[in-house]
Design a protein around this nucleic acid. Structure first.
Lengths: 208, 208
DNA sequence: TCTTTCTAACTGACCAGTCAGTTATTACTC
DNA sequence: GAGTAATAACTGACTGGTCAGTTAGAAAGA
């Protein structure tokens, strides 16, 4: 009955949490928190449902781990950008360009962002984590750069924070587009091209 | 036991569907489709759970009705804008301004938009409806105006569709901000101010 | 051997959907 | 216009399926 060459299951406690998190991210991103089935997560991770409970206490606990785990790479990006001493326009182009090429096109990230939006009422602590670690530092960094450039006379007057929202908006729209409308057959969106054209337009519009 | 002055229930079949849809919109927007409880919808609509089934066949049917019902006012806005023969810049300012003042600040609409994003995998037909009736017509209208203005030499070369995304992006970001981050105590966003500054910047940047 | 990791069958709470019975409203009668 | 039958609107207790979380014991390793 059982092919004896293939072990019925492998014991790899060191790899399990990451494998489970990866499978859980897929299922949560596809279904949302409530509709996601732990049996499905276990299947994709190659374990039984019971094994999940060796590593995570509850479904909500696993969900929190998935979302908080996905914060860190973005946090790295913000930090890296903050510590690179380049002129204003170059820094903004680097930041938005990175968003377009690395973040918006990465389903694992857009999926989590969608989850944070969708479940912000049921799991506000996750929205708080993303806000405090990624969103607010990112906006603060960007609007700081803008304010400094304004002080040097390189940019027109105007609320730096609103300028930051104006720059980032189309990247958020791109995430929504890829998650919501491309799967149902909408015209695909060329995100790097959008980023480039938008940067050209807005940076020109921001000049005195 | 029962205060005889207050009738145990009122019969108002004509008003019921609208009352149920209104209550359902609230609950679905707060909890999402799966986590929403029909008992809670019934309670807020002032009826029993059984009464819901006199007007809607299933929970999914009620959900579809909520989301499709919320399309129509937006559809009206797009149509009204399409048929007003005003010059390019004025039309764009009217459109984005209307979004900022009427759409982004209306919880009933931002709530439904959030639902469409969140449930697009489980209920793709709703994403399709919104895409076909509101999103694609809106983008087509806007990029058509831009292309015409380019033909008259009023606007620099560039993909009109990407210009449209660049204009609308911050309004989508605003919806996300209000739905996701303001409830957890993030700095409130002055959406009309954002719309105005962004329009000033982008329209300036789009000029030849 | 004993411990750790894992499975598979199980349990119990929850909730969408049902339905037998109740109440309000309308229609009809005298 | 008072009484009464017929109908439409509504209630709330109930049911059956689903699924998060549990557990007894098997498999792997030391």
């Amino acid at each position: 009955m059982l092919p004896p060459g293939e072990p019925k299951f492998r014991r790899r406690p060191a790899d399990r949490p990451a494998e489970i998190l990866s499978a859980a991210l897929e299922v949560f991103a596809e279904r949302g928190f409530q509709a996601a089935r732990l049996e499905e997560v276990a299947k994709r991770a190659g374990v039984s449902k019971g094994a999940l409970y060796l590593y995570f206490e509850t479904k909500a606990d696993l969900f929190r781990a998935v979302v908080t785990d996905a914060v860190s790479p973005n946090l790295e990006n913000v930090k890296a950008l903050a510590s690179s001493p380049v002129p204003f326009e170059q820094a903004v182009r680097m930041g938005v360009g990175m968003l377009a090429r690395k973040v918006v096109t990465d389903r694992r990230i857009t999926g989590v962002v969608k989850l944070v939006i969708a479940e912000s009422r049921n799991h506000p602590e996750l929205a708080t984590i993303w806000h405090e670690t990624v969103v607010e530092p990112g906006i603060t960094l960007l609007s700081g750069l803008i304010a400094a450039a304004q002080a040097r006379g390189e940019i027109r007057p105007g609320d730096p924070r609103l300028y930051a929202f104006g720059l980032m908006g189309p990247m958020v729209l791109s995430m929504v587009w890829r998650e919501t409308f491309e799967p149902i057959g909408a015209k695909p969106l060329d995100v790097p091209a959008l980023a480039e054209q938008h940067l050209d337009t807005v940076l020109k519009g921001m000049r005195p």
